[in-house]
C-alpha cells in the first residue's frame, strides 16, 4: 500500500550520472521513473505521473517540444524545467510550472517537487472552499441577521469555511511569485480542477483537457 501512495516523479535528463543522483535523492519519498530523452519520456508518461522534471536542452526532442507533446496527450502533470540559465517568470506562461537552475542540489530538488504537489492539494481544497463560500453568500443574501444566527446550516458552513481557510494557508506555506503566477494561469485555463465549471480564461486560450 505504501508504494502505491507515493507520488510519481518522472526525471527526464540526458546525462546518465545526473539521472542517477536525482533518482537517489527522490527515491526515498517518491516513486521515480527516468528517461534519457524526450521520446522515452513520452513512453513512460501516463496518468500516474504527478511531476515531471524536464531538462530543457537535450539531444533530439527539446524540453519545450516534450512539454507540448505532454499537453497534446491530455495528461496534466506539473512540469518543472531544469535549465542552465535562470529564466524569467515568462516560462510560466509558456506552460512550465516551475524551474530549477543547474547545478541542482538535493534540498532544492525535493522542495520543488513538494511545492508542485502542494499546489495540487491547494487547488482541490480551494474548490470546496469556493463552494462553501458561495453557499453561505446565498444564505446571507436571502436571510436576515436574526435568521442567520439561528440557522444551523449557516453556522456549520462558517465553521467549515474557517477550517478550510486554515488548511489552505498551511498548504503552501511559502508561496512565491512563481507559484502565484502559475496558479493564476491554471485558474484561467480552468485546468487542474473545477474544469467542469468551464471557468476558462476570456481570451479563448486552448483548454486542452
Amino acid at each position: 500500500m505504501a508504494e502505491a501512495d507515493h507520488p510519481t516523479v518522472l526525471v527526464v535528463e540526458d546525462e546518465a550520472p545526473l539521472i542517477e543522483i536525482y533518482a537517489r535523492w527522490l527515491g526515498e519519498r517518491f516513486e521515480v521513473r527516468t528517461a534519457q530523452n524526450g521520446e522515452s519520456a513520452l513512453e513512460q508518461l501516463d496518468e500516474d505521473v504527478d511531476v515531471v522534471l524536464l531538462d530543457r536542452l537535450m539531444p533530439g526532442m527539446s524540453g519545450d517540444e516534450v512539454l507540448a507533446a505532454i499537453e497534446e496527450r491530455g495528461f496534466s502533470p506539473r512540469v518543472a524545467m531544469v535549465t542552465a540559465v535562470e529564466p524569467d517568470f515568462d516560462i510560466i506562461t509558456m506552460g512550465f510550472d516551475d524551474y530549477l537552475t543547474k547545478p541542482v542540489d538535493r534540498e532544492e530538488l525535493v522542495e520543488t517537487v513538494d511545492r508542485l504537489l502542494s499546489r495540487s492539494s491547494f487547488a482541490g481544497l480551494e474548490q470546496e472552499y469556493y463552494a462553501c463560500v458561495e453557499k453561505r453568500a446565498a444564505l446571507e443574501s436571502a436571510k436576515s441577521v436574526e435568521q442567520l444566527e439561528t440557522s444551523e446550516e449557516y453556522v456549520e458552513l462558517t465553521e467549515r469555511i474557517d477550517e478550510l481557510r486554515g488548511r489552505l494557508d498551511d498548504a503552501i506555506p511559502d508561496m512565491g511569485s512563481g507559484d502565484f503566477v502559475a496558479m493564476v494561469r491554471d485558474i484561467e485555463r480552468g485546468s487542474g480542477d473545477g474544469a467542469d465549471e468551464g471557468s476558462g480564461g476570456p481570451d479563448g486560450r486552448e483548454e486542452g483537457r
Binding site: 480551494e126 469556493y130 489552505l168 508561496m175 512565491g176 511569485s177 471557468s199
Partner: peptide, 22 residues
C-alpha cells in the same frame, strides 16, 4: 465584468494567499 465570479474569487484568493505568505 470580464470574468465570472468563481474565476475572480479564485484569483483574489490566490493573490491574497501570496500577500499573506510574503
Amino acid at each position: 465584468m470580464y470574468a465570472d465570479v468563481q474565476t475572480v474569487f479564485r484569483f483574489l484568493h490566490v493573490f491574497t494567499s501570496r500577500i499573506r505568505s510574503g
